[in-house]
């Protein structure tokens, strides 16, 4: 248990610091790389919770594809290597206030609601349980997501076409 908490602490610290990096860095590519760390940390947290499948999906989809897509987008929109001006707009301070207030409210709410509830992990969730759930209980959402992906595919193609 202690080992798990240590791992959690290390991952969480890395994630939070990287997340702050994502929203404060002046270099767009660095932001994407920070995001990689956050997401990889997230995958680590999933492993910690015994949810193996979703962890590797996160690695495959997010880090393997989404981030690459981001980097792609950045490079295609000609990001400067050493930006001179800030990447923030004039909402910096109000935004900070609102975000901190949001975290405060959420945190207070969570602490109030769950206090010391423990997660009792018996065994890691087996992949077959997940797939069974997807193809039995959640078959219609699954199909709908399929249609959504198709729509997104077509939409992206239509949007990005030059003619």
């Amino acid at each position: 248990m202690i080992a798990q908490n240590v791992v959690f602490g290390v991952l969480a610290a890395a994630m939070v610091l990287s997340a702050i990096g994502v929203v404060t860095t002046k270099n767009v590519v660095h932001a994407a790389l920070y995001l990689v760390v956050v997401l990889a940390g997230g995958a680590g947290q999933f492993l910690l919770l015994g949810q193996e499948f979703v962890a590797w999906v996160q690695v495959l989809v997010y880090i393997g594809a989404v981030i690459v897509l981001f980097l792609f987008g950045i490079m295609l929109t000609r990001a400067p290597m050493q930006p001179k001006e800030s990447l923030d707009n004039d909402l910096k301070w109000p935004g900070l206030v609102v975000a901190v207030a949001l975290v405060g409210i959420l945190g207070a709410l969570l602490v109030d609601a769950f206090e010391d509830t423990e997660i009792e992990l018996e065994a890691p969730t087996r992949t077959i349980e997940v797939t069974d759930a997807v193809f039995r209980t959640y078959i219609i959402p699954f199909e709908v997501v399929g249609i959504l992906l198709l729509a997104a595919l077509i939409g992206a193609v239509v949007l990005a076409r030059k003619d």
Binding site: A12, V16, V23, L48, V98, A99, L106, V111, F114, I119
Partner: peptide, 20 residues
């Protein structure tokens, strides 16, 4: 492990995202 440690991590990340 506490449930809350994950939820609070989520909250902080969410707040950071909102800020961004």
């Amino acid at each position: 492990m506490l449930l809350n440690q994950f939820l609070l991590l989520g909250a902080v990340l969410f707040g950071t995202g909102v800020y961004g």
